[in-house]
Design a protein around this nucleic acid. Sequence first.
DNA 1: CAAACTATCTTGCACTGCAAGGTAGTGGTG
DNA 2: CACCACTACCTTGCAGTGCAAGATAGTTTG
Lengths: 106, 106
Amino acid sequence: MNIQFKKGVLELCVFAILDNGDCYGYELVNKISENILISEGTIYPLLRRLTNEGYFTSYLIESSEGPPRKYYKITAEGSKVYNDLKDEWHQFVLGVNRVIERGEKN
Amino acid sequence: MNIQFKKGVLELCVFAILDNGDCYGYELVNKISENILISEGTIYPLLRRLTNEGYFTSYLIESSEGPPRKYYKITAEGSKVYNDLKDEWHQFVLGVNRVIERGEKN
DNA sequence: CAAACTATCTTGCACTGCAAGGTAGTGGTG
DNA sequence: CACCACTACCTTGCAGTGCAAGATAGTTTG
């Protein structure tokens, strides 16, 4: 898979999943991996950054299978940013598809 | 517009336009700009790179409005790469949209 | 005890778009 | 002629992001 396509979009995916309910990092990696190839080394720094920026908060919960899980919860501000980002994404896809389609028709 | 979304996609746009007919750099910038915000400083290095990689060839044509225009023509190999890239793009968009939609439904 | 799995985290690299600039040629206006 | 606007090309260095590779640590199973 083209690495470059993912730039900025993984952030959108993390927002989308957390907007639907709390998750821990490892779980996010698995959920996203169902549709897009992704590495753990990508998600953990991303979660930390977005938490520092105030879009997520985190809390620890003990697990019976491994070390405690760090759950992330989206904030109201994060939810707002997510909606803007999602709109931008759809607009962007439309723009790219127009460029491609025009090339094919003419 | 989110800069990160563009990563790798501008390459796809350049391929798409040249696959439909020869263009010079400035013209490409204008065509793409109709749908996606873009800077000249992005396109020229990109054209050079893809030409070095054998996906485009170039030739000069005198112009009556400014310096000679450097036209780019896509090669057979470039055309092949474009088709693969286009498929990858569509698959990628589907994957991202599935992640987003699942978040909204549940 | 050792392997396999879950789960977290860090470091440094590679790639790509952009801002900010420079260089040149043409055409028009005063 | 001097000046500006426009077309058209190009370069440099920076910023952001994903990844490979690896470290750490707990639990379960053979």
